[in-house]
């Protein structure tokens, strides 16, 4: 079963007088439970593709389906809700909320959902912090943690809602290779254990080994799988 189905996806950006064709007709299907690496040089359109899949940017033409649900025609309120319940995000720059502690950052999406009790939320957040190996840092603010620790919290945050898909845009780009490898290992473990679909992008060939499927992109087009 395909969790993601993309047909004829294009994305244009107006840049002053000219138009940048960031995506130029992507057809892509991703099976549920896959661990996909989007691979390509800087500027090829990886971030754009992940953003459109994640519903935080809109497609110019084409169709994007998440679990059978067409994204391109959905109003903002429902796309936001879909992100809250079915997607998780991991960013290159970690993007934790600075005024919240590690635990609170992990709890954040569940608090937004308002579907669980306080104690359930706390228990789930602490379990995930334990899984990424950061239990002892649960009261620390992001500024008190290293890059690798922050990214592990970001993974916990992305997984806390049990999403169908986790989208990670160059999650290791700001980390040294050893730390980056550990992050990808965690993702690998979670993918195997929970059957969560992972999509991560990278321009670094050394991390390809962690992926089950690799999609090569060049100049906004798929250049082979």
């Amino acid at each position: 079963m395909n969790i993601i189905e993309i047909h004829g996806l294009t994305k244009d950006y107006a840049l002053g007088e000219t138009t940048v064709h960031a995506l130029r007709g992507i057809d892509l299907t991703i099976a549920k439970g896959d661990l996909v690496c989007i691979m390509g040089p800087s500027g090829c359109g990886k971030t754009t593709l992940l953003n459109v899949i994640g519903g935080i940017d809109s497609a110019t033409t084409g169709s994007v389906r998440i679990g059978g649900q067409e994204l391109t025609t959905l109003p903002d309120r429902e796309i936001t809700d879909l992100r809250l319940h079915r997607l998780g995000f991991i960013f290159q720059t970690f993007n934790l909320i600075p005024v919240l502690t590690a635990t609170e950052n992990v709890e954040f999406p569940l608090l937004l959902q308002k579907e669980h009790s306080k104690s359930e939320i706390r228990a789930r957040a602490e379990k995930l912090l334990e899984e990424v190996g950061l239990s002892e840092y649960r009261h620390h603010r992001p500024s008190e943690l290293s890059g690798g620790q922050r990214q592990r919290i970001a993974i916990a945050r992305a997984l806390v809602t049990n999403p169908d898909i986790v989208l990670a845009d160059e999650p290791t780009a700001n980390l040294d290779s050893v730390t980056g490898a550990s992050i990808l290992e965690i993702m690998q473990t979670m993918n195997q254990r929970q059957q969560t679909t992972f999509l991560f992008s990278t321009h670094d060939k050394n991390v390809l080994k962690y992926a089950r499927t690799v999609v090569h992109i060049k100049d906004g087009l798929i250049d082979g799988e």
Binding site: G54, I56, D76, R77, T80, D81, R83, L84, H85, L87, F89, F91, N95, I97, F108, P109, L112, Q113, R157
Partner: peptide, 9 residues
């Protein structure tokens, strides 16, 4: 970030 996490406008 908050919007991506699913916070409404």
């Amino acid at each position: 970030t908050m919007r991506a996490m699913g916070m409404q406008k």
